[in-house]
Amino acid sequence: MSPAETTIPQGYGKVFSRPQSLSDAPTTYCPGCLHGVATRLIAEVIDELGIKDRTVGIAPVGCAVFLYRFYNLDFVQASHGRACAVATGLKRANSDLMVFSYQGDGDLAAIGTAETVHAANRGENFTVVFINNQIYGMTGGEMAPTTLPGQRTTTTPRGRDVASTGYPLRISEMLAQLDGPRYITRQSLHDAPHIAKSRKALLTAFSNQLEGKGFSMVELVAACPTNFKMSPDKANKWLVEQALPAYPLGDLKVKE
């Protein structure tokens, strides 16, 4: 049954539907992948702020590489890790654009660390959505800088050994130390209340840009059920029990 074929009895009003900024294309994410929730929340915020006609998204290299297909927006696909530099170029060329990048933890916190730190430090007026799923999803589940100590990945088959591979990189805490950024927050996508908070954070981040207030980054902690080799439900439980203690939620920097 498609929604169009359903007859809703009189007296009922729609309280939840697909946002306008989303295209009809199905996502390419695995079943139960929280990338999908993040993708939707951004569309809702763009709709709410009425900025669809002036928004340019930046797709990363990673599981969100097809992001441009999922929206009715102008889009550019950036090379691995360089989204913050591409965003800088877009925004410097045309400050009327509303620019957001969408990046995984390999993209943003490993290969793209320099671009991210310096864009944040310059206080570039765009919005970064950072999906921390503690893994390289697209390439088959290798260790990310955010992988937890002891966590098994295809490149840490005996569990991440911090003595040789270092510790989970808390990039939001790092950026919060800088004078440049306006807003740095970490939220989670594992259940409806946290999704509501994530949405609010995204709304703040995009509103900041609209008001010319500078760099905002929303880190969204997510799970990768496929590479965790868990059911989506289990992966979300694991996220709460294992990942969230390493990645405390909340605003890390709010510059007035």
Partner: peptide, 28 residues
């Protein structure tokens, strides 16, 4: 109950939710 929790978590935005409107709920 039309609480939308299911739709909030659905990663594929496959769920639409309708809720009984207050004014009309008595009539119904």
């Amino acid at each position: 109950t039309g609480c939308t929790i299911c739709a909030q978590i659905c990663p594929d935005v496959a769920i639409e939710v309708y809720r009984k409107e207050k004014a009309e709920s008595k009539e119904a």
